[in-house]
Amino acid sequence: MWQELRVLLRKEIMLEWKQKYAFNGLLLYVLSMSIVIALVFRDELNPSNWNLLLWLMLLFAAINAVAKSFLSEKPEQLRYLYTLARPAAIILAKFIYNAGLLALVALLSLGVFAFLGEQHFHDPLAYVGLVLLGSLSLAANLTLVTAISAKAQNQSTLLAVLSFPLIVPLLLMLVRLSDTALTGTGANQGEGFLGFLLVLTVILVGVSVILFPFLWRE
């Protein structure tokens, strides 16, 4: 299992390294969005709205980043992959890779965003932790949904439609918690919901691992 996971992860990273356009495109997207937001709002942006804009930007970056994990591979390629490895290993590898990619993009965009917006963080460590946790749970949610929408027609539209309502609850919790970490106000039962978010992420990953074998079998 570990062997399979390592090989699959290596394959994902090497694929990414060979065709850097996807990652570079994401970086460009994040940078241009940050500049546009900084330009438009200048000093008028209050911390809560800044926080919300950051999460919205991360959401679209996440959908773009994860979309290519199943959609960019051809059916023949995937079929070949399925003969080589167990389905649980494939979905886990995709999830770990997506989570890593998202965490990287999220940290970079947080840096750019914070620098351009000149934010003061009430609790910077908690905020970074929340951004990392957020990218983890977004990846957990999106990986299986991409696998589902890869099975249907008009895939990229379907991905947005399927994933958006599933992500909104996560995003609502994340925005509220990170708002508390940013401004230091309105802290009620933060730890309990943090724990719940973690449990939910673990459940989503577990469900994905259980459900994916049914999905790829034809």
Binding site: L144, V145, P165, S208, L211, F214, L215
Partner: peptide, 19 residues
């Protein structure tokens, strides 16, 4: 295929109904 894929989505969707 429709039965299988939509069943997978349905189970996944129910998990987000709880929060």
């Amino acid at each position: 295929q429709k039965a299988k894929v939509s069943a997978v989505y349905n189970i996944f969707a129910f998990m987000t109904l709880i929060p």
